[in-house]
C-alpha cells in the first residue's frame, strides 16, 4: 500500500512542470484579459482602470454584435454537423482497414494539417474566385454563361472551415471505432440487423464517446475560426474571432475586444457543456 501510494505520488509530481507551464502561458494572460474587459476605453488614454460592465452590456444589447454572435453560432453548428456526417464513413473505413494500410491512411488524413490555414485559404481563393479554377471549368463546360459568385459567400466560408476541421473529426472517431469489436457487427448481422440497423443500434451508441470528443473539438475550432471567414467571407462577412482582432489591433480598444473574447469563450463553453450532457443523458446505457 505504502509503496503504491508513494509511486503514485511520484507520478503526480511529473505533471507539475506541465501544469505550471499551462497555468503560466494560458491562465495568466486569460486572467489579465478578463480584468481588462472590465476597464473603460478612452479615445485619448486608450484605457482607464476601473470596474464596469458597460462593455458587456453594450455587446449584448447592440444588434450588430448580436447578429455576429448568431452568425458565428450558425456557421459553427452547421459546419460541425456536416463535418460529423462526412467524417464518420471515412473514420469507419480507416478504422476497419487492414493494419498495413492504416498508418498510410492516417497520414493521408492529417496531411492537410501540414499546410497552414492562411495558405489553404489562399488556395481556396484561387479555386473559388471569379476568374478561379471552378468558374473556368463551369464556363468551359457551358454550364454557366458568366462567372458566378462563389468566393465571399457564406458557402465559401463553410467549405473552407469544414475542410480545416475534417481531419480532427476523423481522428477522434477513428480511434473510438477501432476499439469496437468487429464481431459485434457480425453478431448484429447474425441476429437479423441490416447495415443501417447495425449502425444505429450498435456502432453509433458505442462510438458515442468519439462522436462527443470530435464534436466538441470541431465545434470549438469552428466558433473560433479566423482565417477562413476573413479570407473567404470577404469584408461583409462577420464572425466573432475577427471582431476580437479588429477591436484590439484596429481600434486599440482592449476592454471591448476582451469582453468580446470572453463572450465568445463563455458561449462556446456553455454550448459545449449543455450539448454534451444532453447527448450523454440520451444515450446512457
Amino acid at each position: 500500500m505504502g509503496k503504491g501510494g508513494k509511486s503514485r505520488h511520484n507520478v503526480a509530481s511529473l505533471a507539475v512542470p506541465a501544469t505550471l507551464t499551462v497555468a503560466g502561458i494560458l491562465f495568466l494572460p486569460l486572467l489579465m484579459l478578463f480584468r481588462i474587459s472590465f476597464n473603460q476605453y478612452d479615445r485619448y488614454d486608450l484605457m482607464i482602470e476601473t470596474f464596469t460592465l458597460s462593455n458587456y452590456t453594450e455587446i449584448l444589447t447592440d444588434s450588430f454584435y448580436r447578429s455576429v454572435l448568431l452568425r458565428t453560432f450558425e456557421v459553427a453548428v452547421l459546419s460541425t454537423a456536416v463535418t460529423l456526417a462526412l467524417a464518420f464513413p471515412v473514420a469507419y473505413f480507416v478504422a476497419r482497414a487492414p493494419a498495413r494500410w492504416k498508418s498510410l491512411l492516417i497520414i493521408l488524413t492529417i496531411f492537410p494539417l501540414f499546410v497552414g490555414n492562411m495558405v489553404r485559404a489562399a488556395g481556396w481563393m484561387a479555386i473559388m474566385g471569379n476568374q478561379g479554377f471552378l468558374n473556368q471549368i463551369l464556363l468551359k463546360m457551358g454550364l454557366i454563361g458568366t462567372p458566378i459568385e462563389i468566393l465571399y459567400t457564406p458557402s465559401a466560408v463553410f467549405v473552407g472551415i469544414v475542410a480545416v476541421v475534417l481531419p480532427f473529426m476523423i481522428l477522434s472517431l477513428q480511434s473510438v471505432i477501432e476499439g469496437i469489436d468487429p464481431n459485434l457487427e457480425l453478431a448484429a448481422s447474425n441476429l437479423g440487423a441490416g447495415p443501417l440497423m447495425t449502425f444505429r443500434h450498435v456502432i453509433l451508441p458505442l462510438a458515442l464517446p468519439g462522436v462527443l470528443a470530435g464534436t466538441v473539438l470541431v465545434f470549438i475550432l469552428c466558433m473560433n475560426a479566423y482565417a477562413m471567414p476573413v479570407l473567404l467571407g470577404g469584408p461583409r462577412f462577420h464572425v466573432m474571432a475577427p471582431q476580437v482582432y479588429q477591436q484590439i489591433t484596429g481600434q486599440s480598444n482592449w476592454p471591448f475586444g476582451g469582453a468580446l473574447a470572453f463572450i465568445l469563450m463563455m458561449t462556446t463553453l456553455i454550448l459545449t457543456f449543455v450539448s454534451t450532457s444532453v447527448i450523454q443523458r440520451q444515450y446512457r446505457p
Partner: peptide, 21 residues
C-alpha cells in the same frame, strides 16, 4: 444471401455481447 436474411444463431468465441445493452 447476406447474414441478416439467414436464420443462423451464432455463439462467438469471445461471445460478442453488446456491451451497451
Amino acid at each position: 444471401m447476406p447474414p441478416y436474411r439467414r436464420s443462423t444463431g451464432m455463439v462467438f468465441q469471445n461471445y460478442a455481447l453488446f456491451p451497451h445493452m
